[in-house]
Simulated assay, not measured.
Amino acid sequence: MVLLPNHIELYPDRDGLPSVAVTFDLTPSQVEAVLHGLRTVREARYALSQISTDDAIALREFTALIDVLADLSGRQGVGRVQMTVARLGVLRTALAEFASGEHLEREGDALQRPIILEVLDAVEEIHVRAVRAALDGALTPNP
C-alpha cells in the first residue's frame, strides 16, 4: 500500500463548530492518474442529455475537484492538495467507481488503474480518519 503524506486539521468554523481540513501530497504520476480517473468517471456519469438539479450540483463539485488537481498537473515535484472531508469523500467515491471498471474502457485506463488503486487505498484510510475526527471533534494519531 502506498502511503500519502497527509495531515488532518481540526479547527472551529465561523460558528464555532468543529471543521476538518485534509491535506495530502500526490506525486506527478499520481496527479495524472487521478485526473484521468476523475475525468473518465465524470464523462460516464454525466454524459446525459438531461440531468437533475441534484446531478448538476454533484457535477459542479466534481468539476471543482478536477480543477484543483488540474492546477497541479504538469508540475514537477510533489503536489499538495487540501480539501474538506466532503470533497475527499467525492474523490474516494470517484476513484472507487473508476477502479470497479463499470465504464467503457478508454485509452490509458489500463495504465492508470494500478496507480489509482494505490491512491484509492490511501484515500480511503485518510477519509475514515477525517470522518472520525469530524464526528468526534478530536484527532486520532496517524497509524
Rank of each mutant, 00 (worst) to 15 (best):
L104C: 10
M83C: 11
H103A: 11
F98Q: 07
S52V: 05
V41C: 07
I115G: 00
A33D: 09
R80S: 15
A122F: 10
M1V: 04
S52N: 02
P143G: 04
Q82H: 09
F62A: 11
Y11M: 05
V34A: 02
H103L: 07
L26E: 11
T53Y: 08
E124A: 14
R39Y: 10
L139H: 02
I57S: 03
H127W: 14
I115K: 03
A44Q: 13
I8E: 00
V85S: 08
L4Q: 10
I116Q: 01
R60E: 08
I66P: 04
H36F: 13
Y11Q: 07
S49E: 15
L117N: 13
A110V: 03
L88Y: 03
V119N: 04
S19N: 09
V128C: 09
G37W: 13
A94R: 10
V85Y: 02
G137R: 04
F24K: 08
E102G: 15
E118M: 10
T27E: 12
E61F: 13
L69V: 11
G74W: 10
A56M: 05
P114R: 02
R14Q: 14
V81T: 14
H103W: 10
P141E: 12
I126R: 02
E9G: 00
E107M: 02
E32I: 02
A21T: 10
E9D: 02
V119G: 07
R39G: 15
G37A: 15
A133P: 06
V2G: 04
L135K: 13
Y46Q: 01
P5A: 02
D109Y: 08
V78N: 12
R106K: 01
A96V: 11
R42Y: 10
T23P: 04
D55S: 09
F62Y: 15
V2C: 08
V20Q: 00
L95S: 03
A21F: 06
A21H: 09
A56F: 05
A133D: 05
Q76N: 14
D109Q: 01
V22W: 03
E118V: 06
A96F: 08
S73V: 10
D13P: 07
E61M: 11
V123K: 08
V68A: 15
D54W: 13
I51N: 04
A138Q: 03
N142R: 13
G101D: 13
L139P: 01
V123M: 01
L95Q: 07
L10V: 01
V20F: 00
E9L: 02
P5G: 01
G89H: 05
R132C: 07
V22G: 04
A56P: 03
I66M: 07
R113N: 02
H103G: 03
E118H: 12
D67C: 05
L65W: 07
R80M: 15
T40E: 12
V68D: 14
V128D: 13
T84K: 05
A64Q: 03
A70L: 08
Y46M: 06
L139N: 00
V123T: 03
G108H: 01
